[in-house]
Design a binder for these strands. Structure first.
Lengths: 235, 235
DNA sequence: CGATCGTTTGAAAGATATCAAGACTCGTGG
DNA sequence: CCACGAGTCTTGATATCTTTCAAACGATCG
């Protein structure tokens, strides 16, 4: 609850804000608070107006879309260090998604109007936001390409390979959260996800709960039909 | 082929560049050319490195994703006036998609390195790019939500309603391009799209080639299960 | 007129979702 | 320590949706 390190030290330590003027840094500090949030906590609701620009300092956050009928799906995952939906904040438009903490997180919350003001006066901050927005935009494009061009099993295989790369390229990996959430991130039901995983069980992977051992990397890669543009360089 | 109006006049007339310093405007002019491109022309290829920041001045451009297996789908539509994939240009990363002119377009092409340089020295340009990026990001999020949360018929109904709104809210509308392209934009095959349209034929719409008459707006809206966040205010 | 392209339609196959039940894990409290 | 219950995951049967393949139709254009 209480900031262990003074706010200004945290901000000074962030590469994201390294190039701010001292004046800008002061304004930023005055308009910010640090919060700890427990796993499961909702940071904001779909449809809400952004009052803060949230910066994820530690941990990861799910952005969930909800249909009129009430079903909910993971649309985006934001991991520290990154901005939470700067697109909504800079355009002062309602959030399209709900933000829920995947794990215990710490966030920096900057008053939205101050943040927008700083954007005009601090070229460095503008540059940071541009970099962040472009990265998030490209991630969304990749996801659309995946949804439109790849069937379920390919998406699952690709997901496992991406996970492997993020976990130090070892053939043993741990699913980062519940399978139901992963399924919705991949655009399928948990039943389908479960079935696809079991279909991989015979020769390609070995699964035990959240633990997955990749037995036949070559086969998995072949199954995913990787595209270096979408998936990054070969793992 | 040849610029009818001098380059500097075109740039001066664009709201997008209205706030540039005179110095910035000079640099921009020196690094830019205006091009006319015919319908069907490919402006750049998927995987290419961005040499220019393209500004669509007139017309519209399709951004197409291609899978390893070779099938191609419309991922995004960019209409004048807007930037073509600033996310790739500012991050100096390969284009994720191919750009193809839907119709005859005119574009302004700015050398990419000069554009990135101006971004640092011209706060107004940075602000423009932030606005453009955030708009495009939100469009991608909406598309993902549509793909993940809505079945085919809802997507088609929603598309028709969106089209109606863009065409002065009249109940008679014209499909902007071939049905096959619209189908891929909606994430389905042309056969599925055709079947869904015929299923609407009986009472809800009347279709004749590219012309569509909406007979029962209420039913169409109900079928689309609209979400004001995704679809905008009620048409 | 014949060729090409976009579209529609039909029949069949395949993929995915849904519904329902059972298995499993894990934390709680008796 | 065990039993319970909540939540998650798996599995099976079925239904539905979507794609695929194939053919025919229609328009446009040389």
């Amino acid at each position: 609850m209480q900031p262990l390190s003074p706010l200004s030290d945290v901000i000074a330590a962030l590469p994201m804000f390294a190039g701010l003027s001292s004046e800008g840094r002061r304004i930023l500090c005055d308009a910010s608070v640090i919060q700890q949030a427990a796993r499961g906590l909702v940071l904001f609701e779909q449809g809400a107006d952004p009052n803060f620009q949230t910066v994820v300092l530690k941990g990861a956050v799910h952005l969930l879309g909800r249909s009129v009928q009430g079903q909910e799906m993971v649309i985006e995952v934001v991991e520290a260090p990154d901005l939470l939906l700067p697109a909504a904040v800079v355009s002062d438009s309602p959030y399209l998604m709900r933000a829920r903490c995947i794990e215990d997180v710490s966030v920096l919350m900057i008053k939205a109007d101050v943040f927008r003001g700083l954007l005009a006066s601090e070229p460095f901050l503008a540059h940071t936001v541009i970099g962040c927005l472009s990265g998030q935009f490209r991630a969304m494009v990749r996801q659309i390409m995946t949804l439109k061009l790849r069937p379920g099993p390919q998406r699952v295989a690709g997901y496992l390979l991406a996970l492997m790369r993020r976990q130090r390229n070892e053939t043993h990996l741990t699913l980062p959260y519940e399978k139901g959430l992963i399924a919705s991130q991949l655009g399928m039901t948990r039943e389908s996800f479960s079935r696809i995983l079991t279909s991989l069980q015979y020769g390609i992977i070995h699964m035990d709960g959240q633990q997955i051992q990749i037995c036949d990397l070559r086969a998995l890669r072949e199954l995913s039909a990787p595209d270096p543009l979408i998936d990054g360089p070969d793992p």
